[in-house]
Measured scan of single mutants.
Amino acid sequence: MASDGVVVEIGKVTGSVGTTVEIPVYFRGVPSKGIANCDFVFRYDPNVLEIIGIDPGDIIVDPNPTKSFDTAIYPDRKIIVFLFAEDSGTGAYAITKDGVFAKIRATVKSSAPGYITFDEVGGFADNDLVEQKVSFIDGGVNVGNATPTKGATPTNTATPTK
């Protein structure tokens, strides 16, 4: 695992066909100046998982989280898009600690492993708008004895992609 920078880890949970599971997305290594904004994309298989919603985690402190935390689910493109932009203008609602960034709610549709993997990152910046190093650890849903650990090695991303 990367020793510096922010680590975004997609949790690994267990479920069975027809059940709804909650998959946490963790941030670790949050910089001392916090995270003022970030955007990134995960990939998944809508034939295996139906993403039914995404909720902000406990490290989102904006009293009205829909102003700073936004997501979009595109089953036709097989992606989930995340956007966080601190909304106070003063840094008061920045992410300042490690913990759960988001909770992905999904219904298991198939007995195949439900991988959720890193696809791309736009950027991560602290309260001074300084770009942060970030790496990703894939996860998803274990169905029966299947284990979604494909790509469990962190993917280092030093520069934003478009």
Rank of each mutant, 00 (worst) to 15 (best):
residue 3 S to P: 09
residue 3 S to K: 07
residue 4 D to K: 04
residue 4 D to C: 02
residue 4 D to H: 04
residue 4 D to Q: 09
residue 5 G to T: 05
residue 5 G to N: 07
residue 7 V to H: 09
residue 7 V to Y: 05
residue 7 V to M: 15
residue 8 V to Q: 03
residue 8 V to F: 00
residue 8 V to D: 15
residue 9 E to I: 08
residue 10 I to V: 10
residue 10 I to A: 04
residue 10 I to D: 13
residue 11 G to W: 15
residue 13 V to G: 13
residue 14 T to Q: 11
residue 14 T to Y: 05
residue 14 T to A: 11
residue 15 G to L: 07
residue 15 G to H: 13
residue 15 G to Q: 11
residue 16 S to V: 07
residue 16 S to N: 14
residue 18 G to M: 08
residue 19 T to D: 08
residue 20 T to Y: 11
residue 20 T to V: 09
residue 21 V to T: 09
residue 22 E to L: 05
residue 22 E to H: 05
residue 23 I to D: 02
residue 23 I to M: 12
residue 24 P to W: 09
residue 24 P to E: 04
residue 25 V to H: 07
residue 25 V to R: 00
residue 26 Y to L: 14
residue 27 F to S: 08
residue 27 F to E: 06
residue 28 R to N: 10
residue 28 R to S: 12
residue 28 R to H: 07
residue 28 R to P: 10
residue 29 G to H: 07
residue 29 G to T: 12
residue 29 G to I: 14
residue 29 G to N: 08
residue 30 V to C: 03
residue 30 V to P: 10
residue 30 V to G: 05
residue 30 V to Y: 04
residue 30 V to I: 13
residue 31 P to C: 00
residue 33 K to D: 02
residue 33 K to M: 04
residue 34 G to F: 04
residue 35 I to T: 03
residue 35 I to L: 07
residue 36 A to C: 05
residue 36 A to H: 00
residue 37 N to F: 00
residue 37 N to D: 02
residue 38 C to F: 01
residue 38 C to I: 00
residue 39 D to R: 00
residue 39 D to V: 00
residue 41 V to A: 01
residue 43 R to F: 05
residue 43 R to I: 15
residue 44 Y to M: 09
residue 44 Y to T: 06
residue 45 D to C: 07
residue 45 D to F: 12
residue 45 D to I: 13
residue 46 P to V: 06
residue 46 P to L: 06
residue 46 P to I: 08
residue 46 P to Q: 05
residue 48 V to Y: 03
residue 49 L to Q: 15
residue 49 L to N: 15
residue 49 L to K: 15
residue 49 L to C: 04
residue 50 E to T: 07
residue 51 I to R: 11
residue 51 I to L: 05
residue 51 I to W: 04
residue 52 I to G: 06
residue 52 I to V: 06
residue 52 I to R: 07
residue 53 G to A: 07
residue 53 G to Y: 03
residue 53 G to M: 14
residue 54 I to N: 05
residue 54 I to R: 12
residue 55 D to N: 13
residue 57 G to Y: 14
residue 58 D to H: 13
residue 58 D to V: 09
residue 60 I to H: 12
residue 61 V to E: 04
residue 61 V to F: 10
residue 62 D to N: 13
residue 63 P to I: 12
residue 64 N to W: 08
residue 64 N to V: 05
residue 64 N to R: 07
residue 65 P to D: 15
residue 66 T to L: 05
residue 66 T to E: 05
residue 66 T to K: 05
residue 67 K to Y: 14
residue 67 K to T: 14
residue 67 K to Q: 12
residue 68 S to R: 14
residue 68 S to P: 15
residue 68 S to G: 11
residue 69 F to D: 02
residue 69 F to N: 01
residue 70 D to A: 15
residue 71 T to A: 02
residue 71 T to Y: 04
residue 72 A to D: 00
residue 72 A to Y: 00
residue 72 A to E: 00
residue 72 A to S: 01
residue 72 A to G: 02
residue 73 I to P: 00
residue 74 Y to S: 00
residue 75 P to S: 07
residue 76 D to Q: 04
residue 76 D to Y: 02
residue 76 D to K: 01
residue 76 D to I: 01
residue 76 D to F: 02
residue 77 R to K: 01
residue 77 R to I: 02
residue 78 K to H: 06
residue 78 K to T: 04
residue 78 K to F: 02
residue 78 K to I: 01
residue 78 K to D: 15
residue 78 K to P: 01
residue 79 I to L: 03
residue 79 I to Q: 01
residue 79 I to Y: 13
residue 79 I to G: 02
residue 79 I to F: 15
residue 81 V to D: 01
residue 82 F to S: 03
residue 82 F to L: 03
residue 82 F to C: 02
residue 84 F to T: 02
residue 84 F to L: 07
residue 84 F to H: 02
residue 85 A to P: 00
residue 85 A to Q: 01
residue 86 E to H: 01
residue 87 D to K: 07
residue 89 G to D: 01
residue 89 G to C: 03
residue 90 T to F: 15
residue 90 T to Q: 12
residue 90 T to R: 15
residue 91 G to Q: 04
residue 92 A to Y: 13
residue 92 A to N: 11
residue 92 A to E: 09
residue 92 A to M: 14
residue 93 Y to D: 09
residue 94 A to G: 13
residue 94 A to L: 04
residue 94 A to Q: 03
residue 95 I to C: 13
residue 97 K to L: 10
residue 97 K to W: 15
residue 98 D to Y: 10
residue 99 G to R: 13
residue 99 G to M: 05
residue 99 G to A: 09
residue 100 V to R: 11
residue 100 V to L: 05
residue 100 V to E: 12
residue 102 A to L: 14
residue 103 K to C: 15
residue 103 K to A: 06
residue 103 K to Y: 15
residue 104 I to V: 08
residue 105 R to P: 11
residue 105 R to C: 07
residue 105 R to A: 13
residue 106 A to D: 01
residue 106 A to S: 12
residue 107 T to E: 12
residue 107 T to G: 12
residue 109 K to P: 08
residue 109 K to Q: 07
residue 110 S to G: 07
residue 110 S to T: 11
residue 110 S to W: 11
residue 111 S to I: 06
residue 111 S to W: 03
residue 112 A to I: 12
residue 113 P to E: 11
residue 114 G to F: 07
residue 114 G to L: 07
residue 114 G to T: 09
residue 115 Y to P: 08
residue 116 I to L: 05
residue 117 T to P: 04
residue 119 D to K: 03
residue 120 E to F: 04
residue 120 E to S: 04
residue 120 E to M: 02
residue 122 G to W: 00
residue 123 G to R: 00
residue 123 G to D: 00
residue 124 F to Y: 02
residue 124 F to K: 00
residue 127 N to P: 01
residue 127 N to F: 02
residue 127 N to Y: 02
residue 128 D to R: 10
residue 128 D to A: 06
residue 128 D to M: 05
residue 129 L to K: 00
residue 129 L to E: 01
residue 130 V to S: 12
residue 131 E to W: 01
residue 131 E to C: 01
residue 131 E to Y: 01
residue 132 Q to C: 08
residue 132 Q to R: 08
residue 133 K to H: 12
residue 133 K to G: 04
residue 134 V to T: 13
residue 135 S to A: 10
residue 135 S to H: 06
residue 136 F to S: 11
residue 136 F to I: 04
residue 137 I to E: 11
residue 137 I to K: 12
residue 137 I to L: 13
residue 137 I to H: 12
residue 137 I to F: 13
residue 138 D to W: 06
residue 139 G to P: 02
residue 139 G to W: 10
residue 139 G to C: 09
residue 140 G to H: 14
residue 141 V to D: 12
residue 141 V to I: 14
residue 141 V to Q: 13
residue 142 N to W: 08
residue 142 N to L: 12
residue 142 N to F: 07
residue 143 V to C: 07
residue 143 V to N: 05
residue 143 V to F: 14
residue 145 N to D: 09
residue 145 N to G: 07
residue 145 N to C: 12
residue 145 N to L: 11
residue 146 A to Y: 09
residue 147 T to M: 07
residue 147 T to D: 14
residue 147 T to V: 12
residue 148 P to D: 04
residue 148 P to E: 03
residue 151 G to N: 14
residue 151 G to V: 14
residue 151 G to M: 10
residue 152 A to Y: 09
residue 152 A to Q: 14
residue 152 A to K: 07
residue 152 A to S: 10
residue 152 A to M: 03
residue 152 A to G: 12
residue 154 P to W: 10
residue 154 P to Q: 11
residue 155 T to V: 12
residue 155 T to F: 09
residue 155 T to E: 07
residue 155 T to M: 11
residue 156 N to M: 06
residue 157 T to K: 12
residue 157 T to W: 13
residue 158 A to G: 13
residue 159 T to N: 14
residue 160 P to S: 12
residue 161 T to A: 10
residue 161 T to F: 12
residue 161 T to C: 14
